[in-house]
Structures are given as structure tokens and as C-alpha cells.
Design a protein around this nucleic acid. Sequence first.
DNA 1: GCGACAG
DNA 2: ATCTTGTCGC
Length: 232
Amino acid sequence: MKKENEGLIKQFTKIQEELLPQVKLENNFHKEEISLVAGVDLAYWENDTKHYGTCCIVVVDYHTMKVVEKVHSYGEIMVPYIPGFLAFRELPLIIKAAKKLKTAPTLYMFDGNGYLHYRHMGIATHASFFLKKPTIGVAKSYLKIKEQDFAMPKQEAGAFTDIMIDEEVYGRALRTTKGVKPIFVSCGNEIDLATSTEVVMNFINKESRLPVPVRLADLETHKVRKELKDNL
DNA sequence: GCGACAG
DNA sequence: ATCTTGTCGC
């Protein structure tokens, strides 16, 4: 790790260690109540020496799969990307965008881990304390923790293997689509892993291996960035 | 010096 | 994350 980040790492680690005891890996709602799910993602660009980012949140109806709302925020990015501390870099714009929502999502899904993290504090878990809603972590690649690799799930859609480290389940490798690379699902907060997996699978279609809300948020960030680039 | 490393 | 075209395959 870069030496100039040592101070931040110490400071950030303390903040997350204080939040950890408040994490609850149980549903804070009834499954029948799930109606709107928000997907969150960011995209970046730069002008000269300054770094900018945009956060897009796309709210999708759990049953009809229709988009019911889209909001975004943007601004200068002041925190560097440090593996394990993604939340501190992305949270400011996430909170800014979430404040613009007129609908109230039942839960949020993130592009990144939740409990599957060195300190159980991936962005999905960390963000729940500010959004005050249940959250799910959905990562496209594996973050190796304590030298532990994950077991590859079978090729069938819906197949998964739990990622267990020191007798504890951190998350799971989930094959959302037959024959395609697995994604990594973990609890964010106020939800259990089985429900998290169920929600993710509900949003899988032929278009991508990622759940629809996160996929659409990703597409939206690229679109918004294109528009903002010329106007900043 | 080399490799790791969510996004 | 981002820099980037075509191309192989269903």
C-alpha cells in the first residue's frame, strides 16, 4: 500500500471497526414486502489533475422488472481508491444521489462487496448505515481474504458455493447464468444471505450475469458521464 | 524488485 | 474504475 495513505487507512479502519457491532445478518423485513430495489453504481473521469465521478441509482420493481425511478449525483472525488476502503471513496456521491429519490426502495444492491470483506465492511454494509435500508453486495470479481480462494460453483444457473473463512460464511460465489463467470454475493446489512441470493436471482435475465438494478445503474453511469464530461 | 488489488 | 476494435460465438 502506498505510504501516503497510511494515515487514511488508520482513520478509516477505526471508523469501520466501530460500525461492525451494529451489523445484522437477518432480515429486517418480510419477503412479501419487497417491491422496489435500487441498484447503485459509479463511473469516473478526469479533467487535467482533478478527478470526478457520477453516482447513478436505478430503482426497479421487484415483480414487474420495470424501472420506476433514476437519479444521479456528481462531483469531484477527493478520496483515493484503496483496496478494502472503497466505501470512503464512493459514499459521498451515493448519499447525495439517494437524497434525490422520490420513491422509497425496499433495499439497495451495490456494485461491490458487503460482508465479504477483510473487516466485514464492504461498501454495501458500510452504506446501509447512511441509507438506513437493507443492502446487498454484488461484486464482479473476487476479493481474496486471508489467502482463502473460493470453490467454483457448478455450471448450472443458480449454483453457488459458500465462501467460508475461519468457520464463518462471508458470502458466496453465485453462478447467475449457465456457463458464465460467477459473481460474488454477500449480505450488506439487515438481510440474510439466502434472501440476498434470492433477490439477486430474481433480477437475472438473458442480458447479463448481473442483477438488473446494478446492470442498469452501470449503463446509466456511462451515459451520464458522457453528458457531464462536456459540461464540466 | 514483484505481485496483489471490490471499484 | 479507465484506456479501447474487432471478433468469436450463440
